[in-house]
Structures are given as structure tokens and as C-alpha cells.
Amino acid sequence: MEKILFLAYTQEDGLLPSAALEALSAALSLKSVLGSAELVVGLVGGAVQSAADQIAGCGASRVLGVTGPEFAVSRYSTDAVAAAAICKVAGATLVIAPGTSRWQRVLPGVAQRLGGVADTHLTQVEGADGSLKVTRWYYRQRMEGVIQRQQRPWFLLVDPGSQPAYAKPGATAVVEPVAVELSPAQMRTDFKGCRGAGQDVQTIRPEAKLLFVAGAGWTKKQADGQPHVKDAEGLILNFLKASRASLGSSKSLVDLGGEGEAVLSFLTHLNQIGQTGSTPRHAKGLSTCCHGEEPHAVGWRFINERRAINLDANCGWARGKADVLYVADAFAVVSKLNALLTAG
């Protein structure tokens, strides 16, 4: 019989991040298809009671917690000790967890520590005839695989944004504390906080409905033989302000900065979409001045509706990568669009 451990950490407010609530949904659907499986909840954090209460209705047989100031922050050494201790006490054979940066950093190592295996970026977890199959992408979202494993414990990290979030009403839960001891060797790293990568403007908005992608065309010579980088900057920033879209970029555009050319000052490599960038999830995406080459377009795998503005009717977007390609000057279109957005 499988023993499913849903493993999460608490945020600063003591609650679970939405990615964790999604992973819990996956754990619950797995429990229902695997029939006799037992579900245990494991929580790590400065304090975990509020989070335990938040999901008290999930039907877990036990709630295990590792708490303390050392566990309030995201750090490999302490997270590994906490996660491994909970897995052992739970006797987990399957560990389902959100694929956030914190868990993605540490849980594969914990799997190794416990003699187990780990798979990440899962988009689907399903069971049939009492056995478990998971779906994930290979070669940077170019192909999709369905896999099975015999080895346990098997750590399953669910891709944020791929599942519905658990939303049953809360109640009061009883948390069983799991005691862990930390040695000085586990306290060699200090957490110093988080900060935005962009210069002054926060341009990456994972919750936005729309992804706006800027390509290198914004910095290229235009019809008058001149580049108009300052205009491009103004148009893009105004668009982001009026639409609340998230800003993505092509590699060519962000790389220009490293080569000393004039680029949009608020862009960093974190904005880059594609093969060596990110693969964000948004309902819609609008590409501007970007050619839509394959290494870029693989980052659009989880963008549902796609439109592009490009001067070139034969650009990559025309070949089945966008729903609509507007063959037009993005400077002119975005300027009009901004006027409409601010007027409305």
C-alpha cells in the first residue's frame, strides 16, 4: 500500500503558497485513484499551525510539523534535515510537493539521502489499476513523456500553475511535532532576503493574464534608418502599466545588454522566455518585434492564446506558433493600444 506524503512549507504569513494548494489537489486525486493509499501532511516553517488549519479538511490521517526560526527561511541544509525527518516519520512511499524554487532546490537531494528518486515539473499525476503514472516534458517542452517507477520513496514535484488549487474550508488541526537536531555544519548559510531583479520596475508578474514579449526588433533600425530605443522603452513601460501584463523577452534582446548595446533598461535575463529562459503560464501572450524562432517559442508551451505583431509575414509565428499574426509596425500598434488602454 502506498503512503502519500503531501509536503509543503509555510510562507511568511504562516499559510501555504498557492503552488502548495495545487500540489495538495494532485495528492488528493492520487489518493482517490490509488484506492487504499493513506495521506499524511508534512509541514515545515517558522510556525505551521495556521497552514495545518487551512487544510484541515483534506482527510489526512496525520499532520507532521517541523518548526522553528531556522525553518522559516529557504535554505538547503535545514530544509533537507526537516524534509527527511518528516518523510521518515511518515514512512512515505510517495512524496507530493509543489515545484517551487525552495522545494526544487532541496527535495531531489532529500530523495537521494533517503535512497529514493525524484521527478520534477510534473503536469499530471494519475493512477490506473492501483499504479501511478506521471507526465512531464522533455527537451525543454519539446516532447511530453508519461513515466512510471518502482523505486520508493518517489518524490513528485508538481509544476505550479498546472493543477486546480485545493479550496475546502479550514478547521482546527492537530499537528504532531517532529523533532530535528541541527549541527553547526547545517548552519553555514545565512538567508539574507529577497530582492527584485529588475532595476526599478517590477516587470515579472506570474499572476498576470497576459504575457507581453519584447523582441530584439524594438532596438533595430526602423523605417527611417534609425533605432528608437527610448521610444520603445516608453511604449513598453506604458503598456505594462496600463495592462498589468507580465514582461517577457527574447534572448537576443537581453543579450544585447551584455554586448554593450543600447537596450531596454528594465530588462534582465529573468525576463527571458525560451530554451534557456523561462516557460511561464499565462492565459494569453502577445509577442512584439520577436521572430518566434523555435528556441524562443518552446517557452510559450503553457501560453494558451497567442498573438504576434511583426513586420515580417514569414516570421516563425506564421508557422503554426501563433493564433493571429499581425503584419504591422509594433511601434505604431502599441502606441495606439496604449492610447486606448489609458482612455478606457
Binding site: 539574507k192 530582492r195 527584485g196 506570474p206
Partner: peptide
């Protein structure tokens, strides 16, 4: 790199 276009800073 962490979520939301942020960086986590640590000292080792």
C-alpha cells in the same frame, strides 16, 4: 532565482 522575478540572497 526565486519566484516572481526575484533573487534570493544568501551568505555561505
Amino acid at each position: 532565482r526565486v519566484e516572481g522575478g526575484q533573487h534570493q540572497l544568501s551568505r555561505c
